[in-house]
Design a protein around this nucleic acid. Structure first.
Lengths: 153, 153
DNA sequence: CTGTCTGCAAAAAATTTGCACTCTC
DNA sequence: GAGAGTGCAAATTTTTTGCAGACAG
């Protein structure tokens, strides 16, 4: 089961107001790009292209500022897949139940994967290391289904 | 037990020769920077500064080229801690037993942590996902010992 | 000599910043 | 009308590339 990326706009508006931020059209448009592209890990430029296609005029600098703001608010999560730019995705649930990423070394596909074993691991590590862990990010590198077959030539 | 970063120079020279690369002075100097700074996660500029201090003249571009080469050879591992530049560390063992990183959200310390639970997790995920996993990278974010205490003010 | 490697400077790519203008409360 | 937000262009930062010369087999 893959849970759909959703954003509760009412709730969000409130979270903005708490911090005296405004939920401007540009910010909504950026968010919409993520809602419209579930499972994609969008870079600033990706977002910029997406919103431009939808005729919405918006500056790249604004996209960057918005992505940073939304990351700070934990609405988005910033991540890095080693391709030289930051990528973002909707942060389903501020603290729990992140999925992991399986990155194919051959074709670059990024597949998502859920597993609760990591929560256990987190607990163990927290205990052993004296760290108060609040988040984690896990990347597995390997070869996807498709690339495994084509490598057997 | 923390195992010291070591590099077998003889073995390394052979690995270079296999690929028709040369183990030039510059490349050795870059490697030495990592050996001399165990547990540090050095960026290209860090390495450049370190080698310059040791009176060794070397171009930044060469450092970048060397870091990339060594990563490709799996001598170093490229990583990203979200500070806008790539960082590297010695890859102890090409495929197994990577340590994880505990990153303090307050002071930025990066602590290393070993645990074999993740190997189990890797097996489980490989089976469930049809991915042939060859490597992983795990980051835990939280608050270190020190910052936990100082936050309790 | 031939091909690899290096340094330098220039280029490219990603992100940030300054500033004037616009919009909202 | 004060402060927040935006767009644009310029600046900064990180990384890559072109090229001429140096070096190794």
């Amino acid at each position: 089961m893959i849970c759909m990326a959703t954003i509760n706009m009412g709730d969000l508006k409130q979270r903005f107001q708490e911090r005296q931020y405004k939920l401007t059209p540009q910010r909504q448009i950026v968010l919409q790009a993520f809602v419209d592209n579930p499972g994609k890990h969008l870079s600033a430029e990706d977002v910029h292209n997406i919103v431009r296609k939808q005729s919405a005029e918006i500056g790249l600098a604004t996209v960057y500022r918005t992505l940073e703001l939304l990351s700070d608010m934990d609405v988005l999560q910033k991540m890095d897949f080693g391709d030289g730019r930051s990528r973002y995705e909707i942060n389903e649930d501020s603290s729990e139940h992140h999925h992991h990423h399986l990155i194919c070394l051959s074709c670059g596909t990024v597949k998502e994967f859920e597993d609760d074993l990591l929560e256990t691991l987190e607990t163990v590590i927290a205990r052993k290391s004296n760290f108060k862990i609040v988040d984690h990010q896990v990347k597995f590198y390997g070869y996807c289904d498709k690339c495994q077959s084509s490598r057997e030539d």
